[in-house]
Nucleic acid binder design. Structure first.
Lengths: 212, 212, 212, 212
DNA sequence: TCCTAATCGAGACGGTACGTCCTGTCTTGGT
DNA sequence: ACCAAGACAGGACGTACCGTCTCGATTAGGA
């Protein structure tokens, strides 16, 4: 994965005045992750984050609109760093790989406590939903798309010619994979181990190839 | 679905004194749902709920430990009332049915804003997780188990003899169904319409029967 | 001097609910005076007062609208306790007495730093001005009126029959006495000692009796 | 009255470099007076003054230590411009004149809200007190001294030979005049009209001449 | 003509206090 | 024993100013 680090807060409002400290951004996001681990989402306070980061509260509010936006950016950085999909040689193996990778991120204490919380908030805040989508969800979805392309190249999956149908299928697969992992991890609160990943991948690959 | 309504808050500590008002319970849960619809999870306050219910805050705290527990009970009542699985004659149709039913509940504004929020809280509160499981999750899972039994009776699915393996499979199927619906509804924020339910059910049934 | 102590904040809004703590009122006013002595008007903060009083900020704001009102009440209590006018047997002696009494109050660090500050604020806040008048100024003025009555009874001053003219004269005398003491104490920043009080009283008594 | 305008802020630290803008000083003091009229002392902020003056906050802080000093200078300029004492031919008339002149200045909204505020601050800040004395009080006192000299020249007042006693008497008269006007204007919040000025002057002149 | 240095605007910075809101507990009097 | 009402201690909120700082851009006098 590439890019970002600290995603754009809009590119320089004016050209005059003291420039914003890049280090402050980094310190704030680090402090946010630390506070999430220690306190969890609901006990995390922006005043505490600012104190941990050695930064004034105003500096924090100058950059982020609130707790939701800050936490999305803090968690997004993790997804940015830790998502990749090496070619494991087959569809089943690739699905297992992506499942374990999602799970590894979701089992971190920072993301475990934060992700569903911001998703819950996003049900009443379209801007937040969009921010989650671009910062987190789309990065995950890219892996699913990549895996499908490889499977098609290998001949494991048929090539869908209608682009709308192709998009619908990709969305479906993504919801199934991401949803199953999230549900297993957060709702059922059971670990995603090798056996589960294998069973799930078998079920999915079976379903995808059954129609052929 | 049967039972509960207002599940036990422990059974009457002493025997004397004025008994608790049953109407208060109902009014509080109704007010909670109303407030969820109007304000969403994060802006809902217990003082406001008490005021809407025409009840003192003390009365509310005497019955529930906090916002999390109250909301779980308020939402659970909806799952209690609206989940059932009529026999639609085949596995594919039964899956479609359960999917649409989950989705109908998740698309209500009360549950949409509340469910992921309490799940997020539950990652740091085992008692809350247990409460969610017994009040909500297990009610959903019962439908999946029922559907499987019917499918096995019809011969659409093989009968698993090892009970541990049977439980693992049931858990997997449940995480896939519930997770996919949740992810579609809350993360992707797309509706679960007939077409999607059909595609998903086909994928799942294909996967389940592919190994045979 | 009699009455008040903690002047009315309106007499009980409703009759139900937990009654307001009378001790809190006392602790807050004590803490306010302490803070005025230590920090002065401009560095006094309501949060600090609340902390000193062992009281939540909300308790303070429930009773007073802001710093101005609180300080007026805190200072007024001093005027309430320390103003009285024993009959010293003659007009000159009575004037000296009242002058020394005003001065003694104004030279306290609490009042020195606070009184002009709230008067300054009152120039833009009629409600505050009224509060100062009833809580502080009128108590002082009563002494002047008492002194005049005694002087008239002794035959040192003529009896004014026109009540409007009598009021005008009383106002004038009051502004001269209080103004001179305030100016000497706060603007000139010189002490009001026996010599000054004697000279001032002589000047005033001379002026009052010159026309006769 | 003569002099000053913008009194020295120390005389050029180094000799090279860009010189300070004289116009900035003027703009800042004008803006300060405007802000005092609009907002009053307590709501006046230096950031707002800087913005009104079209000047950076830094420029303001380079010249004044804080709000107190700035406001003293801003109102001092008014005293500088508007105090003078034409010879009205008699002590009573001169006293009336000086009283009305003080009152006219104190009844301006800028001075009304600011003067007592800085005096209040000065009770805990000797440097500020000194600044007020030299910038404002001494200018007023000069008028009182001038009036006394004239009265002595006219034979209306005796010539005091002991210089210490003369100074004490002048201070007393000044505290009485200035104090009475301030108290009438700011505490009693009544206008200083012709009738009041006449009554007050009669009282004072009566007192001054009674001993003779 | 360049150089040096203090000025200027802009605006971000670490802080502090604000006044409001919500939490969960408590104290009333009344049922 | 329960209830409605509402005061209580505590603590986070997001905003507003404070006085300081860091920028790049002027604007002089002295070299």
């Amino acid at each position: 994965m590439t890019s970002a680090g600290t995603p754009a807060h809009g590119t320089r409002h004016g050209r005059t005045g003291r420039p914003r400290s890049a280090e402050a951004d980094r310190a704030i996001l680090d402090a946010t992750r630390d506070a999430l681990v220690e306190l969890g989402w609901s006990k995390l306070t922006l005043g505490d984050v600012a104190a941990r980061a050695g930064v004034a509260k105003t500096t924090l509010y100058r950059r982020w609109a609130g707790k939701n936006e800050l936490v999305v950016d803090a968690v997004a950085a993790l997804f940015d760093e830790h998502l990749e999909l090496p070619d494991r040689g087959g569809l089943q193996a690739d699905v297992e790989g992506v499942v374990r990778q999602f799970a590894a991120l979701l089992e971190r204490p920072e993301t475990k406590t934060a992700l569903m919380a911001v998703v819950a908030e996003s049900t009443r805040d379209p801007a937040l939903r969009e921010r989650i989508r671009t910062a987190i969800v789309d990065r995950q979805k890219a892996l699913v798309l990549l895996g499908r392309e490889r499977a098609q190249a290998r001949g494991e999956l048929p090539v869908e010619t209608d682009p709308a149908a192709a998009a619908r299928t990709a969305d479906l697969i993504f919801d199934v994979i991401a949803g199953a992992v999230v549900h297993r991890t957060l709702v059922s609160a059971e670990p995603v181990d090798g056996a589960w990943a294998r069973s799930f991948a078998a079920l999915l690959v079976g379903g995808l190839t059954a129609g052929a």
